[in-house]
C-alpha cells in the first residue's frame, strides 16, 4: 500500500512538472508561432479572406526580389540598394565590435592595472544607457564631427555610434572567454617555442573563437535590426535600411498598403536572424555556459 502510494505521488509530481513547463515555456510562445505562421502563409497567398484567412498560392508577393515593384513610397522600388545599406551598417558594426572588444576583453582579463575593477563596473553601467536618451547629444556630436547629412558618411557615423553601444557588453562576453584560458596554457606555448604573437595566433585565438563568433553574430544582428538611429539621423531616402523602409511602407496610410508584399518583405528581413540562430545555437549557448572544454 505505501509503495503504491509513493509511486502515485511520484507520477503526480512528474505530471505537475510537465504541466508547469508547458505553462511557462510553451503557452507564451504559441501566439508568436501563430504570428509567424500567419506571416508565412500570407506571403504566399494570392487573396486574403476577411483580412485573416489566406487562400490561393502565389509567388507574386516575393516579386520584389527579382523586379522593381511600384509602391506608394516609390514607383519603381528595388530592394537591393536597401539590403546593401543594411549590410553595410550591420557588417560595419560587427567588424568594429569584434576588433575593439576582443582587444578590450583581453586587456580586462589578462592585464593587471589600477582601477581595473572600477573600469569593468563602469563599462557595464555604459551598457545600461538606452540610446533614446542619447539621441540629441549624439546628433550634435555627429554634426560637429562632420558625420551627419553627407551620404554614406552618415551611415558610417551611425555605425560607429551603434558599435559604441554594443562594445561594452561584447567586451564582457569576450573577457569571460579569455578568463577561461589558464595562464599555464600560454606559458606552455611560450616554452614550446612561441613568440607572444604566435601564442595569440595558435593558442588563444582558436580558444576564444567561439566567443568572437558569438559576439560578431550578436553585433551583426543588432546592426541589422537598428531602427531608431537610422530613422532619426538619415534624411536621404536612398540611405534607408530595411527596418526603416518597411516602417515607411507600412505607415503610409494614404492608400491601402499591399499586405502581401509587406509580409514577404518582413520575412525576407528576418531571414538572417533565423539563419544565424538556427545554425549557431550551440555557439550561443556556450556564451552562457562558458568554458573551453576540448
Amino acid at each position: 500500500m505505501p509503495a503504491k502510494n509513493r509511486r502515485t505521488r511520484a507520477l503526480l509530481r512528474k505530471t505537475a512538472k510537465i504541466i508547469v513547463i508547458i505553462v511557462v515555456a510553451v503557452i507564451p510562445a504559441i501566439p508568436i508561432w501563430i504570428m509567424y505562421a500567419w506571416l508565412i502563409a500570407q506571403s504566399f497567398s494570392a487573396r486574403v479572406i476577411q483580412g485573416i484567412l489566406p487562400s490561393g498560392f502565389t509567388l507574386s508577393n516575393w516579386r520584389f526580389l527579382w523586379t522593381r515593384v511600384s509602391t506608394v513610397y516609390e514607383a519603381g522600388l528595388s530592394i537591393w540598394p536597401y539590403v546593401a545599406n543594411t549590410l553595410y551598417l550591420a557588417l560595419g558594426v560587427a567588424g568594429l565590435v569584434v576588433l575593439v572588444s576582443s582587444m578590450a576583453g583581453y586587456a580586462l582579463s589578462r592585464m593587471e592595472f589600477k582601477g581595473r575593477m572600477k573600469m569593468m563596473e563602469f563599462i557595464i553601467a555604459l551598457h545600461a544607457f538606452p540610446s533614446v536618451i542619447l539621441l540629441i547629444a549624439l546628433f550634435i556630436l555627429l554634426n560637429k564631427m562632420g558625420l551627419y547629412g553627407r551620404g554614406y558618411v552618415t551611415l558610417t557615423g551611425i555605425m560607429i555610434v551603434k558599435a559604441g553601444l554594443e562594445i561594452p557588453m561584447a567586451s564582457w562576453i569576450i573577457k569571460g572567454f579569455f578568463d577561461n584560458i589558464p595562464w599555464d596554457l600560454e606559458w606552455a606555448a611560450l616554452v614550446d617555442g612561441c613568440s607572444r604573437w604566435k601564442v595569440w595566433r595558435y593558442i588563444i585565438l582558436p580558444l576564444v573563437l567561439p566567443g568572437i563568433g558569438a559576439v560578431s553574430i550578436f553585433s551583426f544582428l543588432s546592426g541589422w535590426s537598428e531602427f531608431l538611429l537610422v530613422y532619426t539621423y538619415v534624411s536621404n531616402e536612398k540611405l534607408y535600411t530595411l527596418p526603416v523602409l518597411i516602417y515607411y511602407l507600412i505607415s503610409d496610410l494614404e492608400s491601402m498598403p499591399q499586405w502581401g508584399l509587406l509580409t514577404a518583405m518582413g520575412l525576407f528581413y528576418t531571414l538572417p536572424v533565423l539563419i544565424f540562430f538556427s545554425t549557431s545555437q550551440k555557439l550561443l549557448l556556450r556564451i552562457y555556459v562558458g568554458g573551453v572544454k576540448g
Binding site: D184, W187, A188, L190, V191, D192, G193, L207
Partner: peptide, 17 residues
C-alpha cells in the same frame, strides 16, 4: 623561453584543448 630549448610539464598539464 623559446630560445632556451627547455621542455616543461605543468601541474595542470596545460595541453592545448
Amino acid at each position: 623561453p623559446k630560445d632556451r630549448n627547455v621542455g616543461m610539464v605543468f601541474q595542470s598539464y596545460a595541453l592545448y584543448p
